[in-house]
Design a protein around this nucleic acid. Structure first.
Lengths: 220, 220
DNA sequence: TATTTAAATAATGTCGACATTTTACAATTA
DNA sequence: TAATTGTAAAATGTCGACATTATTTAAATA
């Protein structure tokens, strides 16, 4: 019996995505059909449907008759993804500042307030901070009101997750880094409310590129 | 026997994609599993794998236990896709002009030459013109050297195809439109070679948005 | 010993059958 | 007549079996 409204393929897609992003399967690792079937207790069809969608997400690659593999990571790919993310984020912010209304402004303020609370508290709850950080940036770009651009942004964010996790493991407990980070968020919000589109775009582009050098070191 | 290196799922994905983009299946039309199996002479698994990837491409939507449908089109969607395309194209051109080398310049020149030949000839071969037009713009943005951005650009281009076909049916034979179009291409190439990144970005953004109003009319 | 060939083992990809769910239709009731 | 219930038909989604292809292992040859 299926209690959920999702079919098996959709459920396993979600699980597999998380497992790959969290590092349960390493870059380049082979995904054996038989093993996956046993581990997730599903049949061939829904499993292969999920893998098909993971290929579309660039998290898995496959070759005919040779099976499925977790996509490799590399410094080149890291740089390309973050560069693309930075440019798209800048573009979205720019459009949001041009189009955003009072509700957008209010949402950004509220998101900032929540993020501040999470950053300044004595013991930082990593998961909660991540959630509020992500929400702050999402609320900022939401004003651009372009479903397609926001979808592209989301997809790039997901693609960067395996690299981002390398950064989080090193730098979240670092209070200095977190403080500097928070200063940038404040500055970014101010630029947005002042409707300085170019300024905000420039800042957010740099903001996103910040972790790249650190991740590069972690990769080598 | 499989003469091709592709598996059944990959082959049928290609066919189905083309058929949807060309209008063999209309927006909102239901895609019956049984019918598709008979038409393309394939089994359930590869067919469903292909449909899974079409969902990832936003060309098909599905609901659990209710089957697959061709994605709807709408004026809102048309505007969003073309807006996103225009912004991404502008971004790519800007980066290409900042990074492009001699080979890039030469490729753009060659592409322009071929496009010109195809546009000025007495009887325009639509398919050939499309190919050269597409190649010209691709060569221009190729200089940005970002696989991810180029992939996003390609995917948006594909998503716009059903709308673009509405435009092509109306305006390709129109000599005036084609002439104006060609003037823009020349101007764009000049800006690129002069390394006027902002100017080229602005022009290409407008260039892409040109057909929107015409398509809007065709949609209503 | 290194290389080639052949057999065996294992894995992938495809199919049709079956269980479950939705939809269409007819019968019943208010 | 309209709404509701119950039944039949059709469609979806899942599974395990099977054919095909790749890989590994062992044997044979140079």
């Amino acid at each position: 019996m299926t209690t959920s409204t999702k079919n098996t393929a959709a459920k396993i897609l979600e699980t597999l995505t998380d497992d790959i992003l969290e590092g349960s399967y390493l870059p380049g690792e082979k995904l054996h059909i038989k093993t996956l079937k046993e581990r997730y207790e599903v049949g061939t069809s829904p499993l292969r449907e999920a893998l098909s969608q993971l290929i579309a997400k660039d998290l898995v690659v496959s070759e005919n008759q040779k099976g499925f593999y977790v996509s490799e990571i590399s410094i080149d790919d890291l740089e390309d993804i973050y560069q693309a993310r930075a440019k798209i984020e800048a573009l979205c912010i720019e459009m949001a500042i041009e189009k955003g209304d009072d509700y957008w402004e209010a949402n950004c303020l509220a998101a900032m307030y929540k993020l501040n609370k999470s950053s300044t508290s004595a013991s930082v709850d990593l998961k909660e901070w991540q959630k509020r950080h992500s929400a702050f940036h999402s609320d900022l770009v939401a004003g651009c009101a372009s479903p397609r651009l926001l979808q592209i942004r989301q997809s790039l964010f997901e693609k960067s997750t395996r690299y981002r996790n390398l950064w989080l493991k090193e730098n979240v407990t670092n209070a200095d880094t977190l403080g500097l980070n928070q200063q940038e968020h404040t500055a970014l919000l101010n630029l947005a409310l002042e409707r300085d589109a170019k300024g905000a775009a420039q800042l957010v582009e740099a903001h996103i590129l910040t972790p790249v050098e650190i991740i590069k070191k972690a990769l080598t």
